[in-house]
Amino acid sequence: MTFATFSLIFTGVLLNSAAQLMLKAGARALGPVAIGSGSSLFAAGWNAATQPWILVGLCCYFVSAGLWVLALTRVDVTVAYPMLSMGYVIAALLAWHFFGEALTASRILGIAIILVGVVVLGRG
């Protein structure tokens, strides 16, 4: 895999991870959403659709998908798709930093295993 191709994939993964964090920030701003009647479901949907963090997060997803398509024109999906697992690593670390989410020993071990797998696939 060339540096340019890896850069496309990694940028897409970063944007995807950023999207997750922005959606989480938007969800926190919304608070718990009760889904009951059709009108409450519509209200919850409208509140989510007009929440700035959620809108920016969805834009990041859109750009990430475009970069993903570009990457797939350059590399096999069997190599590219596992690289998406880097998103878990990035999102877990940033969620720990920004939201205080726990990084337990088992999560850290899982992150290490993911990183080893990404390196192996990137070299193959």
Rank of each mutant, 00 (worst) to 15 (best):
S37F: 13
V75I: 15
G45H: 11
L41I: 14
V69P: 07
A48H: 05
V56F: 03
L70T: 06
G57E: 06
Y61I: 12
G45C: 12
W68L: 12
L72Q: 08
W46T: 12
L67F: 14
T50W: 02
G57A: 08
L58V: 01
V56C: 02
L55E: 00
P52C: 03
T50Y: 01
A43C: 11
S40L: 08
L55K: 01
G45E: 08
G38D: 08
A71R: 04
F62K: 04
V75W: 12
Q51H: 07
S37M: 14
Y61D: 08
A65E: 09
A65H: 11
S40A: 07
L72A: 08
T50A: 03
L55F: 04
L67D: 01
A71H: 04
A65K: 12
C59V: 13
T73I: 06
G57N: 04
L70G: 00
T73K: 12
Y61E: 07
A49G: 11
C60H: 02
L58F: 06
T73R: 11
A65V: 13
C60G: 08
G45P: 05
W46L: 15
S39A: 10
T73E: 06
L58W: 02
S40K: 10
L55R: 00
A71V: 08
L67T: 07
A65F: 11
W46N: 13
S37D: 12
S39H: 07
W68D: 02
W53Y: 15
Y61S: 10
L55P: 00
W68I: 01
G66S: 12
G45N: 09
V63M: 04
R74P: 05
G45R: 11
A44R: 08
V63A: 07
L55I: 05
A43G: 10
L70N: 02
V56K: 03
G66P: 10
A71Y: 03
F62H: 01
G38M: 10
V69I: 15
A44P: 02
A48W: 04
S37R: 14
L58Q: 07
L67S: 05
G45F: 10
L70E: 04
